[in-house]
């Protein structure tokens, strides 16, 4: 009963707010601006002691705290997931990509990826890296199939000054632009820090695909909904590692809970000088890199 009442309260708040904005509907831009200032004032309080979620009102925060989603043996208030990538250890074997596709039923072609690996190569005497990814047409042609991924050995005969592989995946930003631009509320930031997609609710406008600075989103054509890495939410809520971490043979992918000082990721961040990608975007990513070169973005 208490739960129901609370729902009504929050719903009513929602209606009155929308009603007010509905009047302003004529100037949609105005409405968006008003909403965001309102959010700034009252909703984006997650920097306070309360650690409220992204775009979460106080009553919704209380609800999330007291009645977390019914996930067996899991309380989303007790975890703060984070992810690390050690560029120096990645061998570009792409087992992570194939594991991810299997684990999450990602479309099996070269245009849809929840995670991928990039190869940066500085040839002798060159200042700029030549970059290609696992989904590069030449690499696909080399394998002869879009179901398996492997880098071709195109630099075998070249004089290479410096080269390295960089795994990419969703940054699960603290200020996710994808959530900001989602018109329906089909994507959202969970209390444990993971940005999730509600495939039952997404209507496939792909605005989030446009908004993501890291290019991690795509449209799953089979589902007609957006597609994105969620750090294998179904695994981490069961105490498992994400599939890519599970299969990484060299340990260049590190995952864990920031609330636990001894978790791999806590140690990874503590013992290394970590960077994030595209910090100028203001998204505050939760994906940390060690050994990322200047050209990596």
């Amino acid at each position: 009963m208490i739960e129901q009442e609370k729902n009504e309260v929050t719903e009513n708040c929602g209606i009155s707010r929308r009603g007010f904005l509905g009047l302003l509907g004529a100037g949609a831009a105005t409405a968006a601006v008003v909403a965001s200032t309102e959010s700034d004032a009252s909703m984006l309080g997650h920097k306070s002691d309360k650690k409220m979620g992204f775009q979460q009102s106080e009553s919704q925060y209380e609800e999330a705290l007291n009645n977390p989603p019914k996930i067996p043996n899991y309380d989303w208030n007790k975890h703060r997931w984070s992810y690390g990538v050690d560029v120096d250890r990645c061998i570009g074997c792409l087992r992570c990509m194939e594991a991810c596709k299997a684990e999450n039923s990602v479309q099996e072609d070269a245009n849809h990826h929840r995670t991928w690996v990039e190869r940066y190569v500085y040839l002798e005497g060159q200042d700029e890296a030549i970059v290609d990814s696992s989904a590069d047409p030449k690499n696909i042609e080399n394998v002869g199939s879009e179901l398996h991924f492997r880098f071709d050995n195109r630099y075998e005969q070249e004089k290479v000054e410096k080269a390295f592989f960089v795994p990419k995946l969703c940054n699960q930003c603290d200020e996710p632009s994808c959530v900001q631009v989602c018109p329906t509320g089909a994507t959202f930031k969970a209390m444990d820090g993971v940005v999730l997609i509600d495939t039952k609710y997404c209507f496939g406008c792909q605005y989030c695909v446009q908004a993501c600075p890291y290019g991690v989103r795509s449209l799953n054509e089979q589902r007609g909904t957006a597609e994105k890495c969620n750090w294998c939410y179904h695994r981490i809520t069961k105490g498992l590692n994400p599939a890519c971490v599970e299969v990484c043979p060299t340990g260049s992918r590190v995952f864990g809970d920031l609330n636990d000082d001894n978790s791999p990721i806590s140690q990874f961040i503590r013992n290394n000088k970590v960077t994030v990608l595209k910090s100028e975007m203001g998204n505050k990513p939760n994906l940390y890199y060690v050994g990322a070169d200047k050209e990596v973005s």
Partner: peptide, 8 residues
């Protein structure tokens, strides 16, 4: 909807 935020 709206239980924990702007989502189901």
């Amino acid at each position: 909807f709206y239980r924990y935020g702007h989502y189901r």
